[in-house]
Amino acid sequence: MLILLPPSEGKATSGDGPRLDLGALTLPGLAADRERVMAALTELCAGPEDTAREVLGLSVSQTDALKRNLDLATAPTLRAADLYTGVLYDRLGLPRSLTDHVDRVRERILVFSGLWGVVGPDDHLPPYRLSMGVKLPSTGGLGAYWRKALTGPLGELAEGRLLVDCRSASYAAAFKPTGEAAERTVAVRVLREREVDGQVRRSVVSHMAKATRGDIARVLVTENVEARTPEELTAALRDLGHTVELRPAGKPGTARTMDVVVRD
Rank of each mutant, 00 (worst) to 15 (best):
L25I: 03
V221L: 15
R189T: 15
M132C: 09
R91A: 10
R228S: 09
S170N: 15
D165S: 10
S203T: 13
H207D: 05
L25Y: 07
R228V: 04
E107F: 00
A211M: 13
E183A: 12
D264N: 10
V261C: 07
E43R: 09
V87S: 15
D21T: 14
V87T: 11
V87E: 15
T99Y: 03
T229W: 02
T243A: 15
T42S: 10
L125N: 08
S170L: 08
L233P: 06
V190C: 08
N224L: 05
E226A: 14
G117D: 12
R106W: 01
L41D: 00
R213T: 01
P76Q: 08
Y89E: 05
L4K: 12
V204T: 10
V204M: 12
G253N: 10
K148N: 13
P121A: 05
G23P: 08
S138W: 03
E9T: 02
R68Q: 10
S97E: 09
E156N: 05
T222A: 13
D100N: 12
E193T: 15
E107H: 02
L246G: 07
D215N: 12
R106G: 10
A182W: 08
G143W: 13
P153A: 14
L110G: 04
L92C: 10
V244R: 09
A52G: 15
V244F: 04
R238V: 05
D165H: 12
L154I: 11
P126T: 01
T234S: 11
L20R: 04
R218S: 05
A187W: 02
L240N: 04
A217Q: 02
E223P: 03
A73L: 08
R53F: 08
H242N: 05
V225I: 14
L5E: 08
Y89T: 04
L66S: 06
L30T: 10
H207W: 12
L162Y: 07
G93T: 09
D82Q: 14
L72Y: 06
T42I: 03
S168Y: 06
A75L: 03
Y89S: 04
G250W: 03
R161S: 11
P153M: 08
T151W: 06
L30Q: 15
D21C: 08
G117C: 07
D123I: 15
K210G: 09
Y89M: 02
Q199G: 13
D123Q: 13
V204K: 13
E107N: 06
A52S: 13
A32T: 14
D90T: 11
L125I: 06
R79N: 07
A80D: 01
V37R: 04
K176D: 12
V200F: 10
R68A: 08
A174G: 13
R34S: 06
V105T: 04
R192N: 14
D197W: 07
T85M: 01
A173R: 15
A39E: 13
I216R: 03
P6H: 01
D82S: 13
V60G: 01
M1P: 09
R167E: 13
P28I: 09
A75G: 06
V111M: 14
V221E: 00
